[in-house]
Design a protein around this nucleic acid. Sequence first.
DNA 1: CCTACCGATCGGTAGG
DNA 2: CCTACCGATCGGTAGG
Lengths: 197, 197
Amino acid sequence: MLVEKKIARKKQIEQQATALFHQKGYAASSMRDLAGLLGIEAASIYSHVKSKEEILQRICFRMAKEFFESLEAIEQEAYNAVEKLEKAIVAHVEVITKDPSASAVFFSEWRHLSEPHLSEFLEMRERYEDKFRQYVREGMQDEVFETVDERFTVLTLLSSINYIPGWFNPDGKLQPDEIGHKIARLFIKGLEKRISN
Amino acid sequence: MLVEKKIARKKQIEQQATALFHQKGYAASSMRDLAGLLGIEAASIYSHVKSKEEILQRICFRMAKEFFESLEAIEQEAYNAVEKLEKAIVAHVEVITKDPSASAVFFSEWRHLSEPHLSEFLEMRERYEDKFRQYVREGMQDEVFETVDERFTVLTLLSSINYIPGWFNPDGKLQPDEIGHKIARLFIKGLEKRISN
DNA sequence: CCTACCGATCGGTAGG
DNA sequence: CCTACCGATCGGTAGG
């Protein structure tokens, strides 16, 4: 089918663009660079996508969707606050390591989105972070966590995770779920009340 | 003196460029944008700087120098591992919050540096991170910290700090030294061996 | 610090 | 998917 071929080509464009944007940054990447990677002329890309920004939008919103879906899977089962936070961290790391390049683009190139996409993006990020703040709040209410500033804590937590694409090596000794559990352990231990003090 | 005026003007160019690069990113910022902020023509900037990249270099290496100097001040006094790590974290946060825009440029635009500056930059970063790894190692040798992967731990720690320019508000309720101490406390507690387990 | 300009490159379109 | 091309903009230079 022609339609299937078109979709496959579009996916290919998105993949090469992801690698390119990750390496050079969105603004420094040209449609001619992208065309070179695909082995076609720059003008030909426009029969598959409307604009350079459309490609960025697709990458950013696809990742946003994946992050949300992985959280929803956790929320359907009822855990306690610590378990929820731990599973959310592991899931978040899992999404990142499944596509480190797309994640890097997602985390650092979103500011090149134009309105109204930029606002939509920021709203989604806010909602996502709020889930994490809820887990921290629950942990505090359950008197398992110390009293902390939830906003600050979640910002610190997610920042430390979101940098993973910068150093993650799929062939390295640390496996995705190991990374997730290590970070979860470090933070949860840092947040937990001590039995004796 | 004419020389002093020239130096002052160059400083001004660097400051406006810092704000511009922070807001739009280095690649998306044009010399005409910068000229507009300074109230002069784009061509006039070149009587003060050799190139657009020279400005980026100055920002990046000035910040690198500040990070190093703040660490050296700590190392001259002999503390134990935990104290060193805590003071290093607080000092690092202090440097960032003193100039969040320059820090943001430093952390996310360095990849636009050309050789040999790029290699020099990466070497400095490696040396800086190694100091932190040493503190973690010392804490492990002193049996104060649990056995952890130093590389991973320091990457996680510094990532969480380096994102601060993204949300820090000088008029907010959290003061720089508070931020530093909160992060230090969270991580050190996360790393410390528990008395009872 | 300005005017006047350079060659190169950009994102994107028309028409096939 | 290509050729041929557009207007706009880029970093930077010459000469004053």
